[in-house]
Design a protein around this nucleic acid. Structure first.
Lengths: 164, 164
DNA sequence: GCATCTGAATCCATATTTCGAACTTAGCGT
DNA sequence: ACGCTAAGTTCGAAATATGGATTCAGATGC
């Protein structure tokens, strides 16, 4: 995903406008300071309003807004539950769509450990059944692991390049 | 990276406070609406101020601020260049740290294609030398591909759980 | 029934950030 | 010297975030 031709390092326009860009749409959905942190809580199993609020120290109005947005976008779902002798409450649980963000969050965590923290973080990601440590990697269609430097991009056939 | 014990789906506190969380730090650096999009431009090879501005339609003041921040954090570097018969200018190029975000951006693009667009996007990520399509995946330490559902987390030995 | 507790959410006034447009700067070509 | 252009800066208006107080709804206790 570097420049396709290293000999012409300067491109004047992106190959696709941001309105058609999958990445740009994803940034719209989860690309703000709080949504990522709320999803982090969900992955850790912290699903209740006040618990999330206590962990993140986020204003109530913002938390309400972000939870509603993540539910509306289908990343979280409001799930009723009840504990013994208590009333029904709602927890914000990851949907399939939300859980699929794990690869992104794991990759981002690794990046941070390498380039910000400069060492392993306080939590390991492991395989639930084998116990082996897990990392996010780039893999080709023959399941061969490739490096970031190997990755580049290509206009998909049938898509018209809007570059002037 | 789901809950470690599916039978107790409710955790009251995250295993680590956000101040010590690698993910939270990464969110600080690139978790805003514009930084991700600016990095997208950089990956496509669009590196000049006015080109980025034209692609993203971002206010100049915000672009200046975000570029300076990304340079200060070491994701981009200001690199002088000059075209024939023109004065020296500066381009914002990915550093090693910035380029390493490719795995995150590719994973996020894939997530968007699956869960937002609902089909392949207009750009393919491929291996520069083999031409094979590339995806971001979770891999264990024996290079076996694992699913998102297999991934869970564990407090790293020696780290003290701050959960009350 | 009625007060009380608590999680969840809304309201409101203030502070910060973003926006869009106009303005400034630096170096090149004529 | 003059105009041109890429790259910033500046500035008032609009939008958003923040922190605190208030409201709401369901469950329990009296």
């Amino acid at each position: 995903m570097s420049n396709p031709d290293p000999s012409s390092p300067l491109r004047r326009r992106a190959p696709i406008p941001k309105e058609a860009c999958a990445l740009a749409m994803a940034a719209e959905e989860i690309g703000d300071r709080w949504s990522l942190l709320i999803l982090r809580e969900a992955f850790y199993g912290v699903m209740r309003y006040d618990d999330i609020r206590a962990d993140l120290d986020i204003p109530r109005s913002v938390l309400s807004d972000r939870l509603a947005r993540l539910v509306a976008r289908g990343c979280l779902e409001k799930r009723p539950y009840r504990e013994a002798g208590d009333r029904t409450r709602y927890a914000y649980a990851l949907t399939h769509k939300g859980r699929d963000l794990a690869t992104v969050l794991i990759a981002l965590t690794q990046w941070s450990e390498t380039h910000i923290i400069g060492g392993p973080g306080p939590v390991d990601i492991i395989d639930r059944t084998t116990g082996r440590p897990i990392t996010a990697m780039l893999v080709d269609d023959a399941d061969q692991i490739v490096t970031v430097a190997d990755a580049t991009w290509r206009q998909r056939p049938g898509t018209n390049d809007t570059t002037s």
